[in-house]
Design a protein around this nucleic acid. Structure first.
Length: 257
DNA sequence: AGCACA
């Protein structure tokens, strides 16, 4: 239930399709940067990008594992790349490198001939689907946040941070009239001894994190800025109700514009 | 916006 529509109509697979890329960047540089940037998520088998009208501003990155592709999709979604936010989805059809590896590859010429004949297309389609569908486990748990750590921020005035999702005990769960999405979050109900570093440790786990701001004169609140709204939203969902101390589930809303 | 296999 309550699943946010993340807009991927295609089943998870090893290849991610990226668009809204900066078209001014030379293909070789673009591919190298994608490789450099995404390698941290797992082994990359291939990066493809083309200069034709129909394909500029787009790229395909083929990972060895679906889990790597999924991590990138979730963690890099909307992040800035050459001054533009990347839009990432799973590729619609299986990459040749993958098809070659799993034996379902059909050379392009043969493919075309088949399609022109107007029959046997279904075989090809089924072959493609078979390769894609090997991931039954992924669909359901889209909400598994990348952090499930219990950790302590501290020097000496040790504060134990217990990661217990806030269940909505009584009042301060979620505001009735939410502010419109904003890349800046407004955090309330913090313990008065909270210092910016404690919040930074928590919020910097989420992609696009920029900074935490607190006002000395106003204890208990903070502003946390991300690069964009998607990323602030993701962080908000991940940390909503997080208790820095047992009696202080944090209330996170979008800051007013 | 645009899903390829240079």
């Amino acid at each position: 239930m309550g699943e946010m529509a993340t807009g991927h109509d295609v089943p998870p697979n090893m290849t991610i399709y990226i668009n809204n890329l900066n078209e001014k960047i030379k293909l070789e540089e673009l591919k190298k940067s994608l490789l450099a940037d995404f390698s941290q998520f797992g082994k990359i088998l291939k990066v493809l990008a083309f200069k034709t009208l129909k394909h500029r501003g787009q790229a395909w990155v083929v990972f060895e594992d679906v889990s790597s592709a999924s991590s990138v999709l979730r963690q890099k979604q909307g992040s800035m790349f050459y001054d533009k936010p990347m839009r990432i989805r799973y590729a619609k059809t299986k990459s040749d490198v993958i098809a070659n590896a799993d034996g379902t590859f059909v050379p392009r010429e043969r493919r075309k001939r088949r399609e022109e004949k107007g029959r046997k297309q279904k075989d090809q389609h089924d072959a493609n689907q078979a390769g894609m569908g090997q991931n039954p486990a992924y669909g359901g748990a889209d909400g598994a946040a990348p952090h499930d750590l219990t950790f302590s921020v501290s020097s000496h005035n040790l504060v134990q941070l217990s990661q217990i999702p806030y269940m909505g005990g009584a009042k301060s769960a979620v505001p009735e009239a939410p502010a419109p999405p904003n890349n800046i979050l407004f955090v309330q109900n913090l313990p008065h001894q909270t210092i910016p570093m404690m919040l930074q440790v928590l919020f910097c786990q989420y992609p696009g994190f920029k900074e935490v701001r607190m006002v000395e004169a106003k204890p208990g609140i903070a502003f946390v800025e991300y690069e964009n709204e998607m990323q602030s939203t993701y962080a908000m969902q991940g940390l909503q109700g997080f208790k820095i101390s047992p009696e202080n589930p944090m209330l996170i809303t979008y800051a007013k514009k």
